[in-house]
Computed example of a mutant assay.
Amino acid sequence: MSYPSITLKKGEGRTLKSGGLWVFDNEIAAVSPDVVNGEMVSVLDFDGYPMGVGFYNHHSKITVRMMSRHADTVIDEAFLRRRVEDAWYYRKKTVDTSSCRVIFGEADYLPGLVVDKFSDVLVVQSLALGIDRLKETIVRLLLETLAKDGIHIRGVYERSDAKVRLQEGMEREKGFLSAPFDTKVEIVENGVHYMVDVEDGQKTGFFLDQKYNRLAIQKLCKGAKVLDCFTHTGSFALNAGIAGAESVLGVDASQLAVDQATENAKLNGLENTVRFQCCDVFSLLPELEEKGEKFDVIILDPPAFTKSRSSVKNATKGYREINLRAMKLLKDGGFLATCSCSHFMTYELFTQTIGQAAKNVHKRLRQVEYRTQSPDHPILWAADESYYLKFYIFQVTNQY
């Protein structure tokens, strides 16, 4: 089968040639007249050399997202089944699959598509026009693949309500891709029970990428006084509580998140140990310092302070401020778990920013470990956007 083609400008396609999966609008010299948005195209270098097959959308700055680097590939059901089966095989080998990300876009060679499994429910997020046209087939193939392992999925919900769809010329969509079902789903992770709201929770309902980072802080929290900032639905706070913390305060600016976190504490019988407060973290940290509060463990899990290169400078100030304040609130020898989930806040910049914060408050950092996202969010080398989560644990001391 032959597809219409797009041809790159001479000297362009550097991302593609280094192993990436994107072709940008300013890299394209020519487009076949029969190309239709959302349909497959063959990508040719300036001299006609075939580079592979991907789907096209002139509305998007990422004009082509590659599906295969083999020019003769036909993107049919058999091809999609192999992709889905490969994604599931990888999860079975690397993570606890009771709840996990089953498909992670470009890192699973299904660009623009995310599928999360919460117990017996799937949540689908489609962010690109080409994959949107394939999503129902992919979901059906995924259900068939899971069924082969005896896994029954009682419902599928779509959360394609991200603003980025507007940049693809698509409407934001949200709703059932199966018969309606109760969208409040109970999951268990690291021994902690959560109610996940797949209909109205953030993104797909729960942040699975921190699964093993949450587990990593448990051993530090036994008998400790813990502060969990940007707690969302209380996941780090509850891991601290179940590990035997003396007391835990979780803080978030969203009352809805605090209410959900409080319910999750009750679900785990931790309501007397783990409490939550709705307030702005940037305001609270100096208030706690003024009161003379001290903590054994502080966790900083903020939302992405930057979603573009243009706002990195301001984001850096935000990361430096919260880390500086947290270090001042720690007892000598206390532990700081701190992270960034922004792709644009690189490992190097994040590391430098934390170092500057420590220097500013005359603290020494002893690195316990550096971690990144859970393996069900694989980092595909040469696809830089797949590496976004940076997570440090430090012991913070006054010896300077």
Rank of each mutant, 00 (worst) to 15 (best):
N239K: 12
L300K: 01
V198F: 03
V35G: 06
H59C: 07
G334W: 02
N268S: 09
E289T: 12
G150I: 12
I103A: 07
G292I: 10
I299S: 01
N37W: 05
Y387T: 01
F276R: 00
A87F: 11
P33Y: 06
Y3R: 06
I103F: 09
A30M: 09
H343P: 11
E136M: 14
A162F: 08
H193M: 10
S310R: 04
I75M: 11
F46M: 07
D280M: 13
A87L: 11
V114W: 02
W381V: 03
T233F: 10
L238K: 07
V43I: 14
H152A: 13
Q373S: 06
D228H: 12
R364Y: 07
R172A: 13
Q202R: 04
V226Y: 06
N26F: 12
S386L: 04
Q395T: 13
V198M: 01
G250I: 06
A179D: 15
D384W: 01
T63Y: 08
Q373G: 05
S68E: 05
I28G: 02
L208N: 02
Y90T: 13
S98I: 08
K135Q: 08
D161M: 12
D45S: 10
K331G: 09
T316P: 04
D47P: 03
L143F: 09
K225E: 12
A71D: 15
Q277D: 09
Y3P: 03
D296L: 00
F46H: 15
W88M: 09
T273P: 03
M1K: 00
G244C: 12
A162V: 15
G52W: 04
G244N: 13
L146A: 14
L44K: 03
K163V: 10
K174Q: 13
E348R: 10
R214Q: 07
N37T: 06
S386P: 05
H232G: 07
D25Y: 11
E348Q: 14
S386C: 07
F207V: 03
E348C: 08
A357H: 02
D47S: 06
I242E: 00
Q277K: 15
Y56K: 12
Q210G: 06
A78D: 15
D108P: 04
F282R: 11
V102C: 06
L21I: 14
S178F: 02
E287A: 14
A78M: 11
R275V: 08
R371N: 08
A243Q: 09
M51G: 00
D76Q: 14
L113C: 09
K219H: 14
Q352I: 08
D296H: 00
M345G: 03
I103D: 03
A257M: 04
R154P: 09
K225R: 15
D149M: 10
L141E: 06
F344V: 03
T273L: 10
G201C: 07
G105N: 07
M67W: 15
T73K: 09
L227E: 10
V64K: 07
V31Y: 00
G150E: 12
K61N: 11
A237T: 13
V35I: 12
F181L: 11
R325E: 15
K174D: 05
G269E: 11
V361A: 14
S340E: 01
Q125C: 01
Y400T: 14
Y400V: 15
K61C: 04
K331Q: 14
